[in-house]
Design a protein around this nucleic acid. Structure first.
Lengths: 341, 341
DNA sequence: AGTTAGAATGAAAACGATTTCAATATAGTA
DNA sequence: TACTATATTGAAATCGTTTTCATTCTAACT
């Protein structure tokens, strides 16, 4: 290949010192317009590109941030990534992505890129790791941001929506349609999101003076299959319910499948509401009611905050970012019914 | 933060030279089991992690490969990425992703990571850049792999399916259902894929002795909106056609929308077949017939080949990888009809 | 013109690993 | 035991920048 040209090559050809070339490129210290022009001319002539590794080594930063997501093919996460990517890109940061496939070990291993200084910071979207582990990294001065969960550490920016609040909205909406036996297919029971959503569910029931039946709670794994199986378990209990609140759209997909197998008509016999506004949801038959979170914005705002904090442009005051969700009522819950055996 | 420990710290504490520690870590040259154990013990004790930038600089590689896709939220691309990511990961490579949002400039700019040595190689999925530009990079000894297009350069591995072949299958399938006026919504007219798909379309018509009507061809931009608009243009021509072959599922989504607006029944009044087997397709109403490409496998095989070629483990003989596609017949084309005005 | 403050530039150190090459230890053979 | 061939180890160079600190230049002021 063509011998890679180095900063010293540019320097000698331009008749200056390497330091000057560096200064031209990073316009840090002042350089005379004249020498700047001279150096730039040579840089273009030679097509010089600074070596990233050398730069990283000397400057002690890599200008890249990592993003860990449970599943890149889920549109929720890919939208968040888009937001992160665009903002990062505009600030000259690169983005390396890790799709953990819901594997906590892989998530942990990815965090090692922090310790090897391969990345300057990391954004964890709906992390699987315990707060404890994450806090430990933050204690060691690594930069971490979280999407979708709140972690209390002054170095960790978080962005989230109010799970309790929108869950109450969902339930209220269903109650408004006449439902009183409302099942919930929640995420895995130890996830913080899940407990918040359950809290909203319970709070709303209470508000509407509807008795709570513990049998109406099931947990899935946030996947289509998990939703399918959870719904089958609900059916097996032979209890009355006329609506299902699914903790995400993906699991609602499983509910749809089970319903079609059992000949249950949505929304006439069963109302369904999900969360996430997955790309698929509006194309379902009937279109799925869901809670829309501003995914792109969440990614964008958080990465901005994280970069600011990394560069110490920001006080740690408002490191908890909250955004509003919105209930989208579609065909899967637009029908007033009485109930179902 | 805790003072980052370096290889020399490990070395002194273990009573050996830095070189030995390096050898233990990279088990290249032989080290006595005894000293190896001694060094490993200290490494673990101190929790030593080698600095990536220093490593990259000295070894002249970064162990990361870049991936450029037009749209990360399209399940076609995210599946390819999954395949790439998993294999790369297993070979100790990191993956940097660039979502170009169909922006050719962004694609070009990303290739700069090659010249700055930020990445060791790059995989372009359905690239927008001209062959010329890509070939130029390859000529400068940069490692590039292509998914979904064939580029003739001994250094560029490619993986693709036979567009002509599966297009013929699609058309034959439609003809088998009794269709004789078959419209095609192709990709942008200058894309190689598009011309291949058109070739397959024409070839199949000829084979079945069906006259070709140029008005039945429209081009979209591979997005929902593009498909919608292309279909509207077809309708505006007031010509007879009873089936549409859409160059991807995304555009077929637009066809569905237009049909629902115009009260056109799929598949009774119009058969629709797409390409890609997008995650959404089987959930549509009716489910969309489509051509499935082994996306995950394509990503996986190509990255494997690319890495092999980068490390010169491989001759350049079989750098063109071909995989089979499969026509999935679903509800959007399972109805025999005569035609439509 | 001479002095000096401040700006522009250069020389050399530093970043933290790998790798080459020389030196030493080990084992095998006579 | 002495010698040689080989396997381990260490010293020092190296990768290509940025940055510190010293030096030179410029211009402004007396």
């Amino acid at each position: 290949m063509d011998m890679k040209i180095k900063i010293v090559d540019v320097a000698t050809k331009a008749g200056v010192a390497p330091a000057t070339v560096s200064r031209v490129l990073n316009d840090s210290s002042k350089v005379t317009p004249k020498t700047k022009a001279k150096v730039m001319k040579i840089i273009n002539e030679l097509g010089y590109q600074p070596n990233a590794a050398a730069k990283n080594l000397r400057s002690q930063k890599t200008m890249t941030i990592g993003v860990v997501v449970p599943d890149i093919s889920n549109s929720y996460f890919s939208e968040v990534i888009k937001g992160i990517g665009n903002i990062a890109y505009s600030k000259k940061y690169k983005v390396v992505i890790c799709d953990t496939e819901n594997n906590a070990e892989k998530e942990l291993e990815f965090l090692n890129l922090l310790t090897t200084r391969t990345i300057d910071g990391v954004i964890m979207v709906a992390p699987m790791l315990s707060n404890e582990i994450i806090l430990n990294f933050a204690d060691h001065e690594y930069s971490i941001g979280i999407v979708g969960r709140q972690i209390d550490h002054e170095r960790i920016p978080c962005i989230l929506t109010d799970n309790v609040k929108f869950s109450m909205q969902v339930i209220s909406h269903l109650v408004g349609l006449g439902h009183r036996e409302i099942a919930i297919i929640n995420g895995s029971s130890h996830a913080v999101d899940s407990s918040n959503r359950l809290e909203g569910y319970l709070k709303a029931l209470k508000e509407h003076q509807i008795p709570f039946h513990p049998e109406l709670i099931e947990n899935g794994d946030f996947n289509e299959t998990g939703g399918y199986e959870a719904f089958k378990r609900l059916l097996a209990k032979k209890i009355r319910f006329s609506a299902v609140y699914s903790a995400n759209d993906e699991m609602a997909l499983g509910v749809y499948r089970a319903c079609s197998e059992h000949g249950i008509q949505i929304p006439m016999q069963l109302a369904v509401v999900g969360v996430d506004n997955n790309r698929i949801s509006k194309y379902l038959n009937p279109p799925l009611s869901t809670v829309n979170q501003p995914k792109y914005t969440m990614g964008a705002l958080l990465v901005e905050k994280l970069i600011d904090m990394m560069n110490e442009n920001e006080d740690a005051e408002n490191r908890i970012l909250k955004v509003e969700s919105e209930l989208l009522i579609r065909g899967s819950s637009d029908y007033k019914i009485k109930g179902r055996e």
